[in-house]
């Protein structure tokens, strides 16, 4: 009996991973079609594009640590391990925007300009959705959101950072925000597996995680599509 339960649980975790992997590849396909990414992929990026990218990402990166912290405060005692995971995650994220600002300045921007910029329409939607989700009791769907955000850091940012550096002839300290993320690709998949095993009890839970991931992917792509549209 116990074995059946654990087998069922294993199947649900696998289904979640599969759903997340599909959400990810779909998201990557969407990114390919975003004008600024297409420009980068075609080797046609300009320094103005890179500055716009940093400026537009900054407001949402500042929020990053905040929504994870809020999510942590909505996790009950029964799931305290996930609460610690969220808290740790919030700590590693919450200084990221300083590096991003430093890169912006190193590329000819000013602190005033990047700090005073408004969120673009996509960032508004993404942030609002994250805080909305984080405000619900036991917001485990956000594990899906974190899978996407971590994927962005470990796979896309490092790929983009290297391409930006090469195309624009920049130094490491001008692209450190993107390059640094690639160094944090530790065994977060294993960690995610443990957390999914704790929280995914039925098909609805699987859907919640996968659906949250898909929405985050779409809204993140929207944020890049809406560059400078505030």
């Amino acid at each position: 009996m116990l074995q059946d339960i654990s087998k069922r649980r294993q199947e649900l975790v696998e289904a979640t991973f599969r759903g997340l992997a599909m959400a990810w590849t779909d998201f990557e396909g969407q990114l390919e079609q975003v004008p600024v990414i297409r420009k980068l992929n075609r080797g046609q990026l300009q320094i103005e594009d890179y500055r716009a990218l940093l400026k537009n990402l900054r407001q949402q990166v500042v929020d990053g640590g905040c929504w994870i912290a809020r999510a942590a405060s909505h996790v009950d005692a029964e799931h305290f391990e996930i609460r610690s995971h969220f808290m740790k995650h919030a700590v590693t994220e919450h200084r990221d925007f300083q590096m991003l600002e430093a890169n912006f300045i190193a590329c000819g921007g000013t602190l005033e300009e990047i700090r005073s910029a408004s969120k673009n329409m996509g960032s508004e939607a993404l942030s609002a959705f994250m805080f909305h989700k984080a405000s619900q009791p036991n917001p485990f769907g956000l594990l899906g959101a974190m899978f996407m955000i971590e994927g962005l850091g470990s796979r896309k940012a490092v790929e983009w950072g290297a391409a930006i550096k090469e195309q624009l002839g920049l130094e490491d300290h001008q692209v450190s925000f993107m390059l640094y993320h690639g160094e944090h690709d530790d065994d977060h998949l294993e960690e995610l597996e443990t957390h999914l095993a704790m929280t995914v009890h039925d098909e609805d839970d699987v859907q919640e995680v996968v659906r949250t991931a898909r929405i985050v992917g779409r809204l993140y792509a929207l944020q890049l599509e809406e560059l400078n549209h505030v």
Binding site: R18, A21, M22, T25, E28, G29
Partner: peptide, 13 residues
């Protein structure tokens, strides 16, 4: 390649 694997997963799904 990642896009291809996504299509393979969709067939499993």
């Amino acid at each position: 390649i990642r896009g291809w694997v996504g299509e393979y997963l969709a067939l499993i799904d």
